[in-house]
């Protein structure tokens, strides 16, 4: 039976499941490195998902859906940036407000635009896998190729985009001027200020980048996984993403790898549900897996992982 569970598509599915988490987690990384806590990622992702579905339905184009999701994510994150950076309000409160707002706004717009709650119609065009190579072949080589093909070449655009984002963000954070300044902002904003770095602007940019990535994560859910929008479809992924960010020690690649772990747990629970008949355990038990893993990982890591020193603290000049 183990052979039935550990198939190529389990790992391919893990990569798919990891993608929205990773995008949001990297968003969280950039945001927190600049000194702003972003627990609004859940709401940003949800609004991004809705925007992807609405634009997809209205225009018939998946790509326009993705653009709309990114734009919506940036717009929502701007609320968070304004209240955290300009109004210096409590960032956790602001984030929570946005999460609640996102639930309400998406539910309201469902009624307004489509006349019913619950789930939208399927979008006419989803984002299709990038490559189309046939599986199989003779013997061992054929098996190896099937594994490689499923795990590496079976994916939709945003899955590859997420990997690219992780690598590029990691490089940029440690090799570019922007990255050095970002890291300084979250550790000692006054030090950055005294050498002439604009703290507010740097934080605004980081928060909006996290909004774009959160929106992209929502687009992935609708345009590459489900095909339609359902109320509260993010279902806590934004919070798991924050856990992945911490587990990844506030680095983009670390966030991606941590998301991969959570994604694998998710893929595994889906797979195990198929074996309900053989394993006599209620399916709800498997549904818990990713969340239990989150708790366990955080319990083990928190306290030892060091967050950016100035995260969550509004910057007061002078």
């Amino acid at each position: 039976m183990l052979g039935d569970i550990l198939t190529p598509d389990l790992f391919a599915s893990a990569l798919r499941m990891a993608t929205p988490l990773a995008l949001a987690a990297i968003g969280g990384t950039l945001c927190e490195r600049s000194g702003v806590v972003n627990i609004a990622l859940e709401g940003i992702m949800l609004i991004g998902a809705f925007a992807a579905a609405a634009a997809g339905l209205a225009t018939g184009s998946g790509w326009l859906g993705l653009l709309a999701a990114i734009a919506a994510g940036v717009a929502v994150s701007a609320i968070h940036a304004f209240s955290s950076i300009n109004l210096k309000s409590d960032q956790v409160v602001s984030g929570t407000a946005i999460n609640i707002l996102a639930l309400g706004v998406t539910g309201f717009l469902m009624e307004l635009l489509y006349g019913h709650p619950g789930t939208t119609d399927p979008v006419p065009q989803m984002l299709r896998p990038v490559f189309h190579f046939p599986n199989g072949g003779e013997g061992v080589l054929g098996t190896v190729w099937t594994w490689i093909n499923s795990i590496v070449f079976s994916h939709t655009p945003i899955v590859y985009l997420a990997i690219a984002v992780a690598v590029i963000a990691q490089w940029a954070m440690y090799r570019t001027r922007w990255g050095l300044r970002l890291r300084a902002l979250g550790e000692h904003p006054r030090a950055a200020d005294t050498v002439g770095i604009n703290v507010s602007r740097g934080r605004w940019i980081a928060v909006m980048m996290s909004g774009a990535l959160g929106g992209m994560a929502g687009a992935n859910l609708v345009l590459e996984q489900v095909g339609s929008f359902t109320e509260n479809m993010t279902n806590g992924r934004g919070f798991i993403a924050l856990a992945a960010n911490i587990f990844g020690r506030w680095t983009p690649v670390g966030s991606y790898l941590a998301s991969l772990l959570f994604g694998f747990a998710d893929a595994l629970q889906i797979k195990l549900q198929l074996f309900r008949a053989e394993i006599d355990i209620p399916p709800q038990f498997f549904l818990m897996l990713p969340y239990v893993l989150t708790v366990v990982v955080l319990a083990g890591v928190i306290g030892r992982a060091v967050s950016p020193a100035a995260v969550g603290v509004p910057y007061e000049k002078g």
Binding site: R177, H188, T194
Partner: peptide
């Protein structure tokens, strides 16, 4: 030089010194 140092603890000496005036080409330090 401020009484409370304006240094970013996890960054290196070089990174702290050049911060804000980094020698860079196309944004790459």
């Amino acid at each position: 030089v401020h009484q409370h140092f304006m240094l970013v603890q996890p960054l290196t000496v070089t990174e702290n010194i050049v911060l804000g005036h980094e020698p860079a080409r196309f944004g790459v330090i």
